[in-house]
Design a protein around this nucleic acid. Structure first.
Length: 426
RNA sequence: GGGGGGAUACCGAAGCGGCCAAACGGGACAGACUGUAAAUCUGUUGGAUUUAUCCUUCGCAGGUUCGAAUCCUGCUCCCCCCA
């Protein structure tokens, strides 16, 4: 059951460059194709920058094609010069192995591995490591002229740059080109996807496959996911937004998308969700008429968090969002609180003293570093800026006791809108 | 080497014997408003406290004085001009 995926991709603005733009839609409708996209093991987790190719593979899979996710265990040892203006540091073999393992695990989680269009994850180390230098130079290198390689943007930019390009990174393109040839032979893979910076590598693969296999392969690139101000999506002042919950909690992930600028959210909905055209257009209109409701951002955050962290992760993120934005905290247990406030600093106080004589709110604020001095703590309280379990406390002489606990052994202090601290009894 | 100017709180900057914990501006922190935005408005901005008071702070160390950020002596550092 093939769906017309190409016109959907065009509608979403996801088609940047393709081989044979006028016939590729028909080519895709003809029969189920095997389609590949590569993932660099530069880290042990995928990040927001990998979402585009990952989601592209999923879209093709849903439309009835078979996705092939390639982890660059071999190419990662070399370093892709595309889109980089400086030579990369080489990763150690151990580091790389760990990264490959982490990424494979994630890919398995996000693609479908059963049914007629079941996905496959491959590692190019498996075939590239089999090559001897002589074989590689004779069988692959002989078919590519340096003239063509130097004309590719990824190389040209670096030749013009005074930092130059090492022979190692210069060779990268040949490895990726050979991957396509190999996947074509072994899995009948006929199409490669990538970001717009991958066009040179993709076409190199297509050329090589024509010479070595006599086959006519296809390529397609997506636009890069950038914000209206030109900066990259998926980075914050505090760093990269990762897909693994250990590095970026589902809550942080949800918040990242929820805070998307109005100017960017329409593009994100098209690029990163599988919502219907009707729904996306309805959200566009809602953003015009009732921007304050932030429907688009909410839907985007829900869709992506649900996809990456599952329904349970989404529910936790939403619960955390509600609580961190002022909902009163009650009837929770230690585990829930710990989850929600995972990123919030905590402090401790002895249980027996707390139960016997209590702890003054002023002392608690100083203890938790929410206030630098008792004076400052008092000031904040009388300003109305201090909350316990999200309920405003305006009595300067308040003493905290058993009745203020939010769960078995914790209570939540807050100063101002967003400064939280967890107080735990030990 | 000679002459002149300066060092004040998070930053800039006023104060030049008591009314100085120190004007004003920025920043920061709260509150209101708002769309988890921006702008705006209000309050706070050395420490302790029973909010009245005490303690510490105006480059460093001494001194004069009932009283010093303010006057005197020495020291350290910075800037400018002349050689």
């Amino acid at each position: 059951m093939l769906q017309d995926i190409f016109s959907d991709l065009q509608w979403r603005g996801l088609v940047y460059q393709t081989t044979n733009p006028e016939s590729i839609g028909a080519w895709l409708r003809e029969r189920s194709r095997v389609i590949y996209a590569g993932f660099d093991p530069t880290s042990s987790s995928l990040h927001v920058g990998n979402l585009m190719p990952l989601l592209m593979l999923r879209r093709f899979q849903r439309a009835g094609h078979r996705p092939l996710a390639l982890v660059g265990g071999a190419t990662g040892m070399i370093g892709d010069p595309s889109g980089k203006n400086a030579e990369r540091n080489l990763l150690s073999a151990d580091q790389l192995r760990a990264n490959v393992a982490g990424i494979e695990l994630q890919l398995r989680q996000y693609l479908e591995f059963s049914g007629s269009a079941s996905a496959r994850v491959v590692n190019n180390f498996d075939w590239i490591s089999q090559f001897s230098v002589i074989d590689f130079l004779r069988d692959v290198g002989k078919h590519v002229t340096v003239n063509v390689m130097m004309a590719k943007d990824s190389v040209k930019n670096r030749l013009e740059n005074e930092a130059g390009i090492s022979y190692t990174e210069f060779s990268y393109m040949l490895l990726q080109a050979y991957d396509f040839v190999h996947l074509n032979r072994q899995f009948e893979c006929e199409m490669q996807l990538g970001g717009s910076d991958q066009w040179g590598n993709i076409t190199a693969g297509i050329d090589l496959a024509r010479r070595l296999n006599g086959s006519h392969l296809q390529g397609m690139t997506c636009p890069l996911l950038t914000k209206a101000d030109g900066s990259k999506m998926g980075k914050t002042e505090t760093g990269t937004i990762w897909l693994c919950p250990q590095r970026t909690s589902p809550y942080q992930f949800y918040q990242y998308w929820f805070n998307t600028d109005d100017a960017d959210v329409g593009k994100c909905l098209r690029f990163l969700t599988e919502l219907s055209h009707d729904e996306i257009e309805a959200l566009d209109r809602a953003r015009e008429s009732v921007p304050q409701e932030r429907q688009s951002q909410r839907r985007l955050a829900e869709s992506l968090t649900g996809f990456i962290h599952g329904p349970a992760g989404l529910a936790k993120a939403q619960q955390a969002a509600g609580i961190l934005f002022g909902q009163e905290i009650a009837d929770l247990n230690d585990d829930d609180l710990q989850q929600i406030f995972a990123d919030v600093p905590s402090c401790t106080t002895p249980r027996n003293v707390f139960f016997e004589s209590g702890l003054s709110l002023v002392d608690a604020l100083v203890l938790s570093n929410l206030a630098k001095s008792k004076n400052e703590a008092r000031r904040s309280i009388s300003d109305g800026g201090v909350y316990v379990n999200n309920r405003r406390m305006d009595a300067v002489d308040l003493v905290l006791g058993r009745e203020h606990l939010a769960s078995e052994s914790m209570l939540v202090l807050r100063k101002g809108k967003k400064n939280y601290a967890l107080l735990r009894l030990i």
